[in-house]
Design a protein around this nucleic acid. Structure first.
Lengths: 219, 219
DNA sequence: ACCAACCTGACAGCTTCCTGAAGCACGCCC
DNA sequence: GGGCGTGCTTCAGGAAGCTGTCAGGTTGGT
């Protein structure tokens, strides 16, 4: 399950990220709303953890915008404001759950597990894509029934395509996904990794669109 | 499945009992260790839920006595958050799992279900994995028919892999399983135990995926 | 045909992992 | 109570293999 954490507090963010990772979920952590929007353009998330007080705006507005666009991604709000009115505002804006700081990390795990169970019908979904069988939970890929070993970077890249099947992803977007947002990569790293992925998974898995980017091959 | 609940808190006890009953399991609920001993003399239980702080003694001692008598009934410890050392002691004493109060009731159901599936699937649950024969109930491993002696930590680690065969487990996940959540391990203990396990069980039993974690080897 | 964009083999640096050994805590036995 | 043994953790040196960079080749559009 992919989780987007929007939180500007470094200490809390680190703790939450580590906790989620310990639960075996993959996390992207951003500290601003504009970075969150960028992240969501690159990858589809199954759950958003949203702080309400952020340097570039209020989380409530972000949530409302999200919902007005028809996005139904589950959102759990993290906030220090334990006032009833804020809680109601958050839930009215379309939040699924609410955690008041300081919260227990096991409590967070439980809520995440609850959301996961509610929204993902089967526990271990296996995606079939051409000759490939992909198990997101166990991070394994089989090609024609034979296991394929992907390295950490290769998986991160492949995962980006799987999150947005059929969608065009620019090299910049992919860099943002593979590295920290804003990381300076002044070489053709993405091309190299795409090449390695193709060698392992098959040449037609990722399709190049010259000057634009890449997208997951059809079928 | 018959479950023995040892818990002196009335509110929590009631909630747990009702939750288990709702899952369709039968529960006996006692609030003292001597009552627990009496109950176990009368009926055989498939699972014990054990609070550590009880009016007539510590649950740890009860668990140790149980194990020293050769009783291998699965035990899940229920404990308050601030007793990290107790939790480690509990796992060392032979507990199968632990839950930190306050815990989510669905989480409890999930743990119970996990234990139930693993221990009561077939009357004599022996897993064969390559050259290994593993008996979960008696916690013994045979390699090519020859008994292999595993220490407490080694078993806990191996057990984590057996619980999720084929699944990638990060070092953080394994630390959480072997110790308590949030226990700070700033060394390579997991690596060392993996190394020991491989020496005892065979180099190909656990497979390393660099930068991501470990998983049980195939076959 | 030209140029830009992309592909891919090679390689060095560096993160990550392995493992032997030493130190430490705890329980056991006399 | 003191000595002993077992198992766990930490540390450090070395090994393994991932990954970013580059260079030269290939492709595709105009």
């Amino acid at each position: 399950m992919r989780i987007l954490l929007i939180e500007d507090d470094t200490v809390l963010g680190t703790a939450v990220r580590d906790q989620i990772a310990a639960d075996g979920q993959s996390v992207d952590w951003v500290s601003r709303l504009d970075a969150a929007a960028d992240a969501m353009a690159v990858a589809a998330y199954d759950l958003i953890l949203l702080d309400l007080m952020l340097p570039d705006g209020l989380g409530i507005g972000f949530l409302k915008t999200l919902r007005s666009r028809g996005d139904v991604t589950p959102v759990i709000i993290l906030t220090a404001l334990d006032q009833i009115s804020d809680r109601i505002a958050g839930l009215n804006a379309g939040a699924d759950d609410y955690l008041v700081k300081p919260f227990d990390l096991t409590e967070l795990s439980a809520r995440i597990g609850s959301v996961a169970r509610r929204y993902s019908g089967n526990p271990n979904p296996i995606i079939t894509h051409g000759a490939l069988d992909i198990d997101l939970a166990s991070r394994s890929v089989h090609k024609n029934g034979k296991a394929v070993q992907l390295t950490a970077r290769e998986w991160a890249l492949f995962d980006a395509f799987l999150a947005r099947p059929g969608q065009l992803l620019s090299k910049t977007q992919l860099e943002d996904k593979l590295y920290a947002f804003g990381a300076e990569i002044e070489s053709n790293t993405i091309e190299v990794h795409v090449s390695r992925l193709r060698k392992k998974l098959g040449a037609d898995v990722i399709h190049t669109e010259r000057g634009m980017g890449y997208r997951l091959g059809t079928s």
